[in-house]
């Protein structure tokens, strides 16, 4: 217990909380970008445009089947070799968005596939254009159906930001490692504290998901 109090001095706690803020910022930015990009890729795959959809699908599959850690390292360590030099924060956001877009697109395509084809014809017969049908009729329904898998993917995203500590992004995980370097007695207290932070953040997300799900269903 004493170790807990010693480890979580006001200075250390403040330092960790700034890390939590970075974790949240990376998560939110990545969620927004990957959601938009993932929707576009998901729609392309759903539309079954000859050749194009399967080409995009194959590329998407390759990204989806790589470890995120590899993509993060690649973005930060390898891209500078071809002159693309991003600061560690943006490097993480780019890598996470790229990978998560591939994961989300698969969920979004599945959601679109599950919508009854009759809806298209119905909407079109009332004089709506293809794009309008997609925007106002199909996508909102598809998103509703996709809420549970989308939220669990978003929870994964928040957890996965911890991997960026490997490229020295000063997020919660990295800062935790810095704090327990002060004293080896702090290892357990700090790990417990970090677990608590991530758990609360994600648990709130999953409660929100349940709420949304119930309201929309």
């Amino acid at each position: 217990m004493n170790d807990f109090l010693n480890a979580l001095t006001p200075d250390n706690l403040g330092y960790l909380m700034q890390g939590l803020w970075i974790t949240v910022a990376v998560s939110v930015l990545s969620i927004v970008v990957s959601f938009i990009l993932g929707s576009v890729i998901g729609i392309v795959m759903f539309e079954k445009i000859p050749y194009f959809s399967s080409l995009v699908g194959t590329l998407n599959n390759i990204v989806r089947n790589l470890p995120l850690l590899l993509i993060i390292f690649f973005t930060y360590f390898a891209l500078p070799q071809i002159g693309i030099r991003l600061p560690v924060f943006w490097s993480t956001v780019v890598a996470m968005s790229f990978f998560e877009a591939a994961m989300l697109s698969e969920i979004i395509r599945g959601g679109l596939d599950s919508i009854d084809k009759g809806q298209f014809e119905g909407a079109r017969s009332t004089g709506m254009s293809n794009r309008q049908t997609m925007m106002y009729i199909i996508l909102p329904q598809a998103y509703k159906k996709m809420i549970p898998p989308l939220i669990s993917q978003l929870i994964s995203l928040v957890k996965d930001t911890s991997l960026a500590s490997g490229i020295v992004l000063a997020d919660l995980t990295f800062r935790g490692q810095v704090v327990y370097a002060q004293n080896s007695h702090y290892i357990v207290p700090i790990l417990v504290f970090m677990t608590f932070c991530y758990f609360i953040a994600n648990y709130l997300l999953s409660l929100l998901a349940k709420r949304l799900d119930r309201r929309l269903a």
Binding site: I155, K159, S162, M194, T195, Y198, F199, N202, Y203, S206
Partner: peptide, 15 residues
């Protein structure tokens, strides 16, 4: 489901 794999791994490795 709600805790990063990295934290769990570090817990086993360090604690």
């Amino acid at each position: 489901r709600n805790v990063p794999l990295l934290i769990i791994t570090l817990f086993f490795y360090l604690a």
